[in-house]
């Protein structure tokens, strides 16, 4: 019974981290270094909150607009990095700043309105509800579906080829720009969905800065699992569990901050392990991740 309770209290956060990390993994599998993730996550959280306020908790509109804004920012990242010889890191970090800023500018007026009307946002689902079982099944199913797409379909092969060696992929007839845009739309939609889950199912409140750092945890989930959709289920659950129970580990004598820092420590350790051990063949970073992809064109 205790296990069921742990599973259901961890569910909202696990859902948010896992969806966002799945999206991040797909984007990076296609070779685009995604440093915008925390910014996009925070922006989508603010958009979901603001729309929930303005639409009186409409079940659909906040999620749709939040996902759309995530895709919009993601497309800027994917298009510029695949069309022009620009630095992935620079574009990603710029978008991160821009999204942090926009989230404040978008969220604060909605927060002010909330102060006047007392409107509540999100869905407080009871921890004993069977909805969580359903959500777990859907999310884990999604993980398996994406794993299947990546490993067994042509689209998956195209995405991975674009991330490993885009020039060779292009020579073999893959349209790298199109593939990355496709991966970007899918990936950022999932990141936006994760952020909506974070706001509407998990925090259900908003103030300036809500969500900052949680995008990086999703980033850490993805890195720790070697961008593998199925391994991500485990890391997302563990990091969500750690965050949810960070006050409880005080009882064991460990400081709460240790739990806060653990996802990041795990991610870095995992990167080192995946690079330095035989796990490399399956879980290492895509070879061309973050490398400018640019065919110089001389003919006019």
């Amino acid at each position: 019974m205790y296990i069921v309770q742990v599973l259901s209290t961890t569910a909202p956060l696990m859902l948010a981290y896992y969806l966002a990390s799945l999206g991040h993994s797909i984007v990076e599998k296609s070779g685009v270094l995604n440093l915008a993730i925390d910014g996009v996550f925070v922006l989508s959280v603010a958009v979901a909150f603001a729309q929930a306020i303005y639409t009186w908790n409409n079940p659909l509109i906040p999620v749709v607009i939040s996902v759309a804004s995530s895709i919009a920012v993601g497309l800027i990242l994917v298009y510029t990095t695949s069309k022009l010889p620009v630095s992935h890191g620079a574009i990603g970090l710029s978008l991160m700043f821009l999204c942090y800023g926009l989230s404040g500018v978008i969220g604060v007026p909605a927060r002010t309105q909330q102060g006047l009307t007392g409107q509540e946002v999100g869905y407080p689902i009871s921890p004993v509800s069977s909805v969580w079982v359903l959500l777990y099944i859907v999310v884990v199913g999604l993980g398996f579906l994406l794993h299947y797409i990546l490993e067994r379909t042509k689209l998956g092969a195209m995405i991975k080829a674009s991330g490993e060696d885009p020039l060779v992929a292009e020579a073999l007839g893959v349209d790298v720009l199109k593939t990355r845009i496709l991966a970007g739309v899918l990936g950022f939609a999932l990141i936006g969905l994760g952020a909506s889950a974070f706001e509407l199912l998990y925090t259900r409140i908003w103030r300036e800065g809500t969500g900052i750092g949680h995008g990086w945890i999703a980033f850490a989930v993805s890195l720790s699992s070697g961008r593998h959709p199925l391994l991500g289920i485990i890391t997302a659950f563990l990091f969500a569990l750690l965050y949810e129970y960070r006050f409880s580990i005080l009882a064991v004598g460990l400081p709460r901050e240790m739990a806060d820092a653990l996802p990041y420590i795990t991610a870095i350790t995992a990167m080192v392990i995946y690079m330095a051990t035989p796990l490399k063949t399956k879980l290492k970073t895509p070879k061309s991740l973050g490398k400018p992809f640019f065919k110089e064109e001389r003919t006019i």
């Binding site: 910014g39 970090l93 710029s94 978008l95 942090y100 800023g101 989230s103 404040g104 604060v108 300036e208």
Partner: peptide
Amino acid sequence: GAGKASVVDVFIGTILL
């Protein structure tokens, strides 16, 4: 009512981009 950090971030982000 948005705090100073948000506005600064919009400027920094746009210029950097």
